[in-house]
Every structure is written in structure tokens, then in C-alpha cells.
Nucleic acid binder design. Structure first.
Length: 429
DNA sequence: TGTCCACTGGAAGGGAGGGCTT
DNA sequence: AAGCCCTCCCTTCCAGTGGACA
């Protein structure tokens, strides 16, 4: 490249494979049609239509695994309601609905994986109805009762039907209990002008076991279960989006089938299928290839998996990194399966090397469980009879890559020869 | 059958850090 | 400034556990 040529020039000169908006292949994009979710849309619409008549729809709980279209269906209906509001504002309206009632419907969407505290959820909902910055509920500081009262008063300020969507609801309940749901599910008894309806979305059918029975019955007035997509259905979804996203003849024969088949293996996850297709095309584009083939799909699959692990490790707090480092180093030194005691001894030694004060073993057992949940290690409780009961721990990621990644952390002193000789003895050579 | 080990994991509470109210 | 609230991260305490072993 000549010295004075812009760094982006060669990329700009290559032919783009995407037709324009590549967000069409992102899971957050809501298309005009949602293939294979027609029944779920109809079912939910038949419940929600009550809001358009100025009444309170039943609360709904929606269950289904990741990528089964739960959020897409709910947001699809939200968009349709907004469209109807716009149309009603400037046109003749079907006389079965009053323009006034349609105008009063408000949707509030909260992702409880992002906002996972009682305070945060209440604040987010409450602030949707407050325009003045000075009247907003602050980031923190108020007692919960006051936050709730502020939320209730702002909803009640004018007559409306508010549909609150709580996505990933199980995350909120597992982490912070059901007090938000308790308040929100009884809020209607304290409202005169307005009405509130709840839509809870969850990956986990069992989370309702954690709820107070009163909350459970109020919340679960209607239940819907979204089945996973099969490979054929995923194929339809991908074909639909690919048609809009790519120039003609860009995709190789088996690309969509392969993406669908790989995602179908992962409990029919449409999100994964779309990511695979998008990243395959991005890899092809970066490579200046003129079309996308199955090699790109396999590369995309590896890239997604690798990125997930690297992302997870990078965002770990230092103590968790040390715990993982201890496990990886001892495995590299020939110890296949480890106990909590061995990992803790290794962790303490590494901490000493890096000048980090160690946490207690109790806290480390929690960090080990968290690493297990992230899929970075496998930890299962096992009894060794007289030799006690403990967790048996193994890493589930490639050692060399992750060790390098952890050693990039400035606070952690690189160590190689960490050996263990039992839970009470760990040595640095 | 009872003992014992090496923990597990729940409960309670401390304290720091963010912020608001009076 | 003092008092209060909420969240997060952590410690301390302790009853409970599964299975080998005497």
C-alpha cells in the first residue's frame, strides 16, 4: 500500500456482500413477519387487545429456551400497537376501538438481566413517565417505599393502560427475590385512573417456585410456552432474513442449511443461527471473498465459541481470575482433577506472589460455583468417604490460551510451576 | 452401624460506596 | 453534616452431607 493511501481504502474498494443494513441479521431486529410464531402472536394479541379497549389485559408469563422468539413476539406486538396509535392519530378509525383508548396504551420494556435489582427495575419503570429530569427517581438513595410510591403516582398522573414487559425475569427473581413482582402485581388495587398489566418472560420454567404463592397466582393469569425451532423452521427464518440482507447469489448452496442444523443442535436457538449467518458473511467479506460458503460457517462457529470464552475470562474480577489461573496451572502440571481445598491453596499461593490479600475459602467456593455457571470449569460435588466431601473441579477451556489471557492482567504476577500435593500443601518451585 | 472427613451452602451481618433528605 | 437507604462484596458461624472405613 502506498504511504499516503488511507488505511480503509482497500476495504472500501472491495464489493460488500451485505445489501445495506446488516442489523437485519441481528437477533434484536424485528422483521415484518415472524415465521413459525403466528400462533403465539395470535394468542398474545388476543390477550393484549383488551388494552386497546381501555381495560386491563391479564398478566402473562411466557416461557421458552433462548432464541425461541419470546422477546421478538412481545416486541412485535409492541410495534404493532405503536403503529396503530400512529394510524389512529391521522386517520379514520375502525369504530370498534376508541381513538382515546388506543392513545392511552403504554409499553415499558425492562431487561432484568441488565437491570437486576428491585430498585433498578422500579426506577426504570417510574422514570418512563417522568419528563422533567429533576422529577426523576435517582440512581440510588431513595427508600424502596418511596421509589414505589413515585412510580405509582407517575403512572396514575393520567388515565392509561400500562403494559410492563419484564424480560429475563428469572434473573431478577433468582438474584433479588420477588418483592418487585409483589408490588407490581398488586399495584392495580392502588390505582384509580390507570391500569397495569405485566408480561414476564423467562428461560426457566422453574423460577415460579421461588415466588410467593400470592405473587405466583396474580402473575400467572395466563401462561404461554414457546417450543424450540426445528432445523426446517430455522431454515425458513434464515432464508427470510438472508433475502433482505444479502445481494442475490451471495450465499453458497448449503450455508443456510448448515447454520440451521448447527443452531438446531443447540436447542433450536434462532439467535445462534442468525449470529452464525451474520458472522460467516462478515468473515467472507473481510477475506474479500465474493460469496459465503460452509467453510466460513465453521470458522464463524469457532469464532463465536472462542469469543464467548475470552469475553467471559476478560470480564472476571481479579480473585476469580486467580482461582481459574490456579486451576489451569495445576492442570498444566499434570493434576487432572482438583478439590476445593487444592484450588484454594493454589489460589492463596498465587495471591501471595501477586501481593493480593486472599479471600476466605467460603467466598472462594462461591467463586468456583460462578466459574462453573459461566462454563469455564466443571465443578461437581463428590464424596470421598472418609476423605471428606468436596467439589471435584476440572477446567473446560483450553489451558494455554486462557493462561496467556489471564497473565495479560496487570495485577497478576505470571507463575508457571504451581504444583499441588493435597489440600493443605501447594508449592511454588 | 457409627464415625469421620472435608467440605457445602444457608443465614446473618459488617462495611464501603453510591446517593438522597433534613 | 448527620442520618438514612440500597447494593455489592465479603466474613463468620454452623448445621448438614455422602460415603469410605473401622
Amino acid at each position: 500500500m502506498p504511504d499516503n493511501e488511507n488505511i480503509f481504502k482497500s476495504y472500501m474498494d472491495s464489493n460488500p456482500l451485505f445489501r445495506g443494513d446488516r442489523d437485519i441479521l441481528r437477533p434484536t431486529y424485528i422483521p415484518e413477519d415472524l415465521p413459525h410464531r403466528e400462533k403465539q402472536i395470535q394468542d398474545l394479541a388476543s390477550i393484549m387487545v383488551t388494552a386497546l379497549r381501555g381495560n386491563r389485559p391479564s398478566n402473562v408469563l411466557i416461557f421458552g429456551k433462548t432464541g425461541t422468539g419470546k422477546t421478538a413476539v412481545v416486541r412485535y406486538l409492541e410495534r404493532e400497537v405503536k403503529r396503530l396509535k400512529r394510524e389512529s392519530a391521522d386517520s379514520n378509525l375502525d369504530n370498534k376501538f376508541s381513538k382515546h383508548d388506543i392513545d392511552k396504551v403504554e409499553y415499558v420494556y425492562v431487561n432484568c438481566e441488565v437491570v437486576d435489582t428491585h430498585y433498578g427495575v422500579m426506577k426504570n419503570i417510574g422514570n418512563k413517565f417522568v419528563e422533567e429530569w429533576s422529577d426523576q427517581i435517582p440512581f440510588t438513595g431513595w427508600p424502596m417505599e418511596k421509589v414505589y410510591e413515585s412510580l405509582r403516582d407517575s403512572i396514575e398522573e393520567e388515565p392509561r393502560v400500562v403494559v410492563i414487559i419484564l424480560d429475563e425475569l428469572d434473573k431478577l427473581v433468582t438474584k433479588s427475590g420477588d418483592s418487585v413482582l409483589y408490588h407490581l402485581s398488586k399495584i392495580n388495587s392502588e390505582l384509580e385512573k390507570s391500569k397495569v398489566s405485566l408480561i414476564g418472560i423467562s428461560n426457566n420454567l422453574k423460577f415460579t417456585e421461588l415466588l410467593d404463592p400470592r405473587v405466583k397466582s396474580r402473575l400467572g393469569e395466563e401462561k404461554m410456552i414457546f417450543p424450540p425451532y426445528d432445523a426446517e423452521q430455522l431454515k425458513d427464518i434464515l432464508s427470510d432474513r438472508a433475502e433482505k440482507a444479502f445481494e442475490p447469489d451471495i450465499l453458497g448452496n448449503d450455508v443456510i442449511s448448515l447454520c440451521s442444523a448447527l443452531a438446531a443442535q443447540e436447542h433450536g436457538d434462532a439467535r445462534r443461527a442468525l449470529d452464525l449467518l451474520r458472522i460467516s458473511a462478515e468473515l467472507a467479506e473481510r477475506n474479500n471473498d465474493t460469496c459465503v460458503n460452509t467453510d466460513h460457517v465453521y470458522k464463524a462457529k469457532n469464532k463465536i465459541e472462542e469469543n464467548c470464552v475470552r469475553e467471559a475470562v476478560n470480564t472476571l474480577p481479579t480473585h476469580s481470575k486467580l482461582v481459574l489461573y490456579s486451576i489451569l496451572l495445576m492442570q498444566e502440571n499434570g493434576k487432572d482433577k482438583l478439590t476445593t481445598g487444592e484450588v484454594y491453596s493454589g489460589y492463596k499461593e498465587l495471591g501471595k506472589r501477586s501481593g493480593i490479600d486472599p479471600l476466605t475459602q467460603r467466598r472462594i467456593t462461591d467463586l468456583i460455583s460462578e466459574l462453573d455457571m459461566l462454563g469455564l470449569i466443571n465443578a461437581r460435588v463428590k464424596s470421598f468417604g472418609r476423605r471428606g466431601r468436596t467439589k471435584e473441579i476440572q477446567s473446560s477451556v483450553s489451558e494455554a490460551d486462557i493462561i496467556d489471557l489471564i497473565e495479560d492482567d496487570e495485577g497478576i504476577e505470571p507463575v508457571r510451576d504451581l504444583k499441588t500435593q493435597g489440600s493443605k500443601q501447594t508449592t511454588l518451585i
